[in-house]
Simulated assay, not measured.
Amino acid sequence: MSTQRPVAAISQGWVSAGGTGAPNYDEFATDSEITTIVRDNPRSALAVEMPHRAPEAVRDGLDFAASLEAAAQRLAAQKADGTYERVEDFVAPYRITDGDEVSYGVFAAVATDQISTRADEPGLVVRNEDVFPAKVVERTQLTRRLGTLLSPVLLIQTAQGDQLKGALIEAMQSDPVVSDVDAAGRRHEIWVTGDERLLAFAGAGELVVADGNHRSLSAQQAGLERFLAVITTPDSVRIAPYDRLIREWDTDLPSVLERLADNGVGVRESASGPVVPPAGVAILYAAGKTYELTLPASGGGVADRLDHAVIERVFFGQVLGMSADDKRISYVGGDYGPSWLAAEVDTGSGVAAVLVSPVSVDDFVSVNLAREKMPRKSTWFVPKARAGLVLADVR
């Protein structure tokens, strides 16, 4: 490992003039949502992050690789026309306000060689979740073509969160340089400073990857020395449910229910509609009916015993014969909820929905301290840092 500072200022970057903030590329249940956002707001960072979902690319049938040049041209034009302002050697305090709830963080540059994925690998940044290789390939291609990072990795500071929060509040006494409101009504505000204390507090202890496992691995594969991150405090985030929508399957509902029982899952039809289940129980919604699934006990480490791991292993693996990266599975985060999932099934956009109890913060921390891997798409942290507010050049 190098001796470079683990958390540093962004040496060359850009700050939005407004209107560019967007959900990260992997927060959507359907690709058509991305196309709609870009159509309604061509300034959205999604037009660069997901160029093959821009309306013109969809019209012309372009895939991701064929759309990269358009992404590079769009970003270059935005940098030239004042959509983004050039800033050097800075960190960016970040505040998200959602009603009475306020979350704090800071945009900074984090050393890629600090990423640790197992107990015997030194490093300040703990990456805790398996990834989908195809997504990493796309992120790496985009980074290499753009030379700019638009979407931050969300890291939780585990040692000096209170000190970091206090310093961030002090840094936010002036007006923000940009303020952006998302579709849910949350306000995202950015300040620009060179305050060294923020870097000291942000890098004081282990940094757990809460969102951005694919982006952090992509930074490694692209050969970057640093990646763009928002470092937040433990009390600034919570974990919401992360569910699954099955678009198609090569079976029928009675067969699925029979196979579930054969694999040790308790199956009971419920008169109520789909809801967020308690720990140890999952909900299956299909053909207008709701089934409570009592999950079998599992051995192994903390990660292996999580409901998400059992669902992935037993329901999708043993019952349906699907791998976690099967294209027929849509991973649906906490911004959607049971009613949205039920509507997708009822209208024929999916054959079934599987609702899983949210991971507890204690279990999440335990998995990270043990340097185990979280099941893929098992933690939906809220609120999420927006892409396209602060950018970092990487060449």
Rank of each mutant, 00 (worst) to 15 (best):
residue 16 S to T: 12
residue 241 P to L: 04
residue 28 F to I: 09
residue 145 R to T: 12
residue 315 F to D: 02
residue 138 E to Y: 01
residue 194 G to T: 14
residue 104 Y to K: 12
residue 215 R to M: 02
residue 147 G to Y: 08
residue 277 P to R: 02
residue 242 Y to S: 01
residue 7 V to K: 05
residue 102 V to T: 15
residue 264 G to R: 03
residue 61 G to I: 08
residue 294 T to Q: 13
residue 123 G to C: 09
residue 316 F to E: 06
residue 131 V to M: 06
residue 81 D to N: 13
residue 123 G to M: 10
residue 241 P to Q: 07
residue 372 E to L: 01
residue 168 L to I: 12
residue 229 A to M: 09
residue 353 A to F: 06
residue 245 L to E: 06
residue 365 V to S: 05
residue 6 P to L: 09
residue 128 N to W: 05
residue 320 L to R: 07
residue 184 A to L: 15
residue 253 L to I: 14
residue 59 R to C: 13
residue 56 E to K: 14
residue 58 V to H: 06
residue 266 G to S: 15
residue 275 V to I: 00
residue 250 D to G: 00
residue 368 N to A: 15
residue 180 D to N: 14
residue 353 A to N: 02
residue 124 L to H: 10
residue 244 R to V: 04
residue 149 L to I: 09
residue 230 V to H: 07
residue 328 R to F: 02
residue 39 R to H: 08
residue 127 R to G: 14
residue 115 I to K: 05
residue 231 I to G: 09
residue 209 V to M: 03
residue 161 G to R: 07
residue 21 G to Q: 02
residue 103 S to Y: 03
residue 67 S to P: 00
residue 273 G to D: 08
residue 365 V to T: 12
residue 9 A to W: 01
residue 155 L to H: 01
residue 342 A to S: 13
residue 247 R to S: 15
residue 327 K to M: 10
residue 269 E to W: 09
residue 93 P to E: 01
residue 81 D to M: 11
residue 257 L to A: 10
residue 383 P to Q: 09
residue 52 H to R: 10
residue 107 F to D: 08
residue 270 S to R: 15
residue 46 L to F: 09
residue 326 D to W: 00
residue 365 V to K: 10
residue 212 G to Q: 02
residue 11 S to W: 09
residue 114 Q to G: 02
residue 14 W to K: 12
residue 171 A to M: 08
residue 363 D to S: 11
residue 337 G to I: 08
residue 213 N to L: 07
residue 250 D to T: 02
residue 214 H to A: 01
residue 27 E to K: 15
residue 130 D to W: 06
residue 320 L to M: 12
residue 266 G to N: 12
residue 326 D to A: 11
residue 313 R to V: 04
residue 7 V to I: 10
residue 144 R to G: 00
residue 282 A to K: 04
residue 326 D to Q: 05
residue 280 G to E: 00
residue 209 V to H: 01
residue 113 D to N: 12
residue 378 S to A: 07
residue 259 R to G: 11
residue 90 F to M: 13
residue 10 I to F: 04
residue 100 D to G: 11
residue 26 D to V: 02
residue 392 A to M: 15
residue 380 W to R: 01
residue 295 L to E: 02
residue 362 D to P: 11
residue 137 V to G: 13
residue 26 D to P: 06
residue 141 Q to C: 00
residue 121 E to V: 12
residue 369 L to M: 14
residue 41 N to V: 07
residue 289 K to I: 12
residue 296 P to D: 02
residue 169 I to V: 15
residue 187 R to M: 13
residue 129 E to G: 00
residue 123 G to P: 06
residue 15 V to A: 07
residue 116 S to H: 03
residue 95 R to N: 06
residue 365 V to I: 13
residue 384 K to M: 01
residue 137 V to Y: 12
residue 314 V to S: 05
residue 197 R to L: 04
residue 334 G to T: 04
residue 381 F to T: 14
residue 351 V to D: 12
residue 95 R to T: 10
